[in-house]
Design a protein around this nucleic acid. Structure first.
Lengths: 360, 360
DNA sequence: TTGAAAGCGCTAACAA
DNA sequence: TTGTTAGCGCTTTCAA
C-alpha cells in the first residue's frame, strides 16, 4: 500500500483531521484525549489515525506542555553492576509511572558530569537523578536545584546542598565492619579506594567523596573505640585500573609491616585486589583477610566465598526514582526519603591474622 | 541577583535578542551559530546570553531541524555486564560524535521491546540500536526500517530483515568450543540457555533466537564431524532465575547418564551453574567440565579459573554506534559492518571426563 | 461540543 | 549582514 520509497513526511494531526473530516483542534483533542470530544468525532478520528498509522510527535507535545515525561540519570559507570542494578531500579520505577529514562555515563569525571547535566537540562527532562562524582564540586548541581528543576542525588551526598539524597549510612557500616575486623584480631587494616586526590592520604585529610569520607570516619571511630590508631599508611587512594590496584595490593602485603586485612572500596576494586592476592600465592583468609563493599553474585563462588558489605542498590534506585517523580508531580508532603542501611554479610574471607614475628 | 523564588519561565532567544538589541533571527543565528552574523552582533548576543544564563531549548531546535541528535538503545538487561559493556561502547562512540543516548530496558520481553521502540520513535530519536529479544517476532523492527529510520541490530540477527547487524559468528565459535570438549573426551555435553520456548528441546526444533540457534547448529556440526550425535536430552532451554538454573544443573548432573561437561549460554547463567556445581560438592574440572559464554572478570578468580568464550562486546557496541551514525549522517558507501569473532579462552575448567562405568 | 487562531522556542526562507 | 515572516506539530485559549 504505502511502503513506497519515500514515506518522508510524518503523519500529523492535520492529516488525521482532514481524513476524519474534523478540525485540527478536535482531532488533537481526540488523539491526546483531553478537552471535550463527542463519541462520534472520537471514533472517526481514532479510525483515521489508525488507518494513517499516525504517531504523535512527542517533541511537539513536550514543547507545549513543558513536560517531557522523561527523567535524566547521570552515573559514573554503567558497566559497574552496582550502578547497573541501581539504574534498573530507576527505570523500572520510572516506567511504572509512565516516565522514560535518559542515561548518561560520566566515567566519574566531573567535567563530563557538568556536561551531562547541561545536555539533559537542555533536553528539558522533567527531573534529574545524579550520582555525583564529587561531593565538593557541586555548583552545577546547585544551579539545577536553584533553577527549580527536581533533582535527587544517588549514592553520594553533596555538601551543603539541600536535596533529597538516597544513600546508605556509610559511617555506620564502616564502623561496624572495621570493629568486626578488629575483633578478629586485626590491627593492620588497609582500605583501597579509587578516589582521586592530589596527594597521598594523611590523617585528617578532607576527602572529596562523602562515601569515602564517611567510611574513613567509621574506621577511625572503630579504632578509637578499641583504643587503637587507624593506620594511616594503609589507607590507599588513587587506585585506578586493574594493574594499578594490583600494584597497590602487592605493596600493602609485601611491606615490612604488612596489612593483615584489606577492605576494598567497591566490587570492581575488590576483584583486582583478590586477583593480586591470588597471584602472590597468598591465601584468603589464612594469609590475609578480605572484605569488600558490594555484594556481587560472584563473591559466592570464590574459595572461600567473600565477606561483603551488601547495599540495597536496587531499592535505592527505586527510592530515588520515586522521590524524583514525587517532586515532579508536585506532591505536597515530600514524604522523607527512607534511610538505607548496608549489611555485613559474613562469608569466609575474614579470619584471625596469622601470628608473625611482628607484635600487635 | 536573580535567585528569586519563581524563576519560572525559561530565558528564550527573544529575551536575549531584546537584551542585545538585535532581531530574534540574528540572536538565534549567533546562538545556534549558523547563517551570517557580524562579529559585533555575535559578541553582544553572546554577552547577553551569558548574562541571562540563556540555555537553548533542544526540543524546539529538534522540531525544526528534524534531528534530535539522540539515538535510542534498546537492550534486554542493562544489569548484565555483557550489555553494560556494549552500552558503554555505544555511549562512548555516540558522545564522540555529539549524540546522546536514551537507554531502555526490556527485560527480554518482546512486548516491552515493541513499546520501547514506539516510545523512542515518538521521541523522534535519530536512529535506533536494538538487541532484539526475539529473532522471529520482528514486525516492529521491520516497521522501523520501512519508515526509513536508521536501525542497527546488536548481538542478535532478525530473520529476513535486511539491516546492519553487529554480531559474533556464533556458529563458528560454538563449533570450535564443542570440538574442544569432544577432543577432551566429552560426549555428554550439556547446554543451558534461558531462551523461552513452549516445549522442551527436541532435535531440529526451530529456535527463536539466532544466537541460540547458531550455537545449536555449531554444536551439532562438531558432533557430526566427530561421527557422534548431539545429545538432545542435554540441551536445556527455559532456564530462568538463579534457582531454576541450579535445579536444571542438578538434574543434568544427577541423572543416570549425567552430563560430563556443561556449556552455559551466558555469564549470568554460568554463575548459577557454577554455584550449583559447588553446592553439589562436585569439583570443576575433575567431576564436571565447564565452559561459558562471556569473559567476565570474576571468571579469573574462581578455583580453577574458568574457560570462557570471550566476545568483543565493547567493540561491538562501538561498531553498532558507528554504523548507526553513519546511516544517520547519510554517508554513501555503507562501509560494511566488520565481522566479529569470539575467542575461546582456555583457563582451567575443562579436563577429560572422569572415567565411570558408563561406556562412551 | 466544536473550530479558528494564537503560541510554545526555535530554524529557515526570503527580501532588503 | 540584517530583519521579517513563516512555519515545525502540537496544545490551548476564546468564541461560537
Amino acid at each position: 500500500m504505502n511502503s513506497d520509497a519515500s514515506r518522508r513526511r510524518d503523519v500529523t494531526v492535520a492529516d488525521v483531521a482532514r481524513a476524519a473530516q474534523v478540525s485540527k483542534a478536535q482531532a488533537a483533542r481526540a488523539l491526546g484525549n483531553y478537552g471535550a470530544v463527542s463519541d462520534d468525532v472520537r471514533e472517526r478520528v481514532l479510525a483515521a489515525a489508525e488507518e494513517l498509522e499516525y504517531r504523535p510527535n512527542e517533541l511537539a507535545r513536550s514543547m507545549n506542555t513543558g513536560k517531557s515525561h522523561t527523567i535524566g540519570v547521570v552515573v559514573g559507570d554503567i558497566e559497574n553492576p552496582h550502578f547497573g542494578l541501581a539504574t534498573r531500579g530507576i527505570t523500572d520505577t520510572a516506567k511504572r509511572s509512565g516516565f522514560n529514562v535518559i542515561l548518561i555515563n560520566t566515567d566519574e569525571d566531573t567535567e563530563a558530569e557538568i556536561d551531562a547535566v547541561r545536555v539533559l537540562l537542555d533536553k528539558r527532562v522533567d527531573g534529574l537523578i545524579v550520582a555525583p562524582a564529587s561531593s565538593v564540586e557541586t555548583q552545577h548541581l546547585r544551579r539545577v536545584h536553584e533553577s527549580g528543576r527536581p533533582l535527587v542525588l544517588l549514592d553520594r551526598k553533596a555538601s551543603g546542598l539541600d536535596v533529597d539524597t538516597v544513600a546508605v549510612d556509610m559511617e555506620g557500616i564502616s564502623h561496624d565492619s572495621t570493629s568486626y575486623l578488629i575483633g578478629a584480631g586485626h590491627r593492620r587494616i588497609a582500605f583501597v579506594s579509587t578516589l582521586k586526590t592530589d596527594e597521598p592520604y594523611r590523617d585528617g585529610m578532607v576527602l572529596d567523596s562523602s562515601q569515602i569520607s564517611d567510611r574513613r570516619d567509621g574506621m577511625k571511630r572503630a579504632f578509637d573505640e578499641a583504643g587503637l590508631n587507624l593506620p594511616d599508611d594503609l589507607i590507599r587512594l588513587n587506585a585506578g585500573d586493574n594493574e594499578s590496584i594490583k600494584k597497590i595490593t602487592r605493596e600493602l602485603l609485601q611491606r615490612p609491616d604488612p596489612a593483615t586485612a584489606i577492605i576494598a572500596s567497591d566490587g570492581l576494586i575488590g576483584l583486582s585486589v583478590v586477583e593480586a592476592i591470588q597471584e602472590l600465592g597468598l591465601r584468603i583468609p589464612d594469609d590475609v583477610s578480605f572484605l569488600m563493599y558490594d555484594d556481587f553474585a560472584w563473591t559466592r563462588l570464590t574459595t572461600p566465598p567473600l565477606t561483603v558489605i551488601a547495599q540495597p542498590v536496587y531499592d535505592m534506585g527505586v527510592a530515588a526514582a520515586a522521590a524524583l517523580i514525587r517532586q515532579i508531580e508536585g506532591r505536597k508532603v515530600p514524604a522523607a526519603v527512607p534511610e538505607f542501611t548496608a549489611e555485613l554479610i559474613r562469608r569466609g574471607s575474614v579470619a584471625a591474622p596469622r601470628v608473625t614475628g611482628v607484635g600487635n
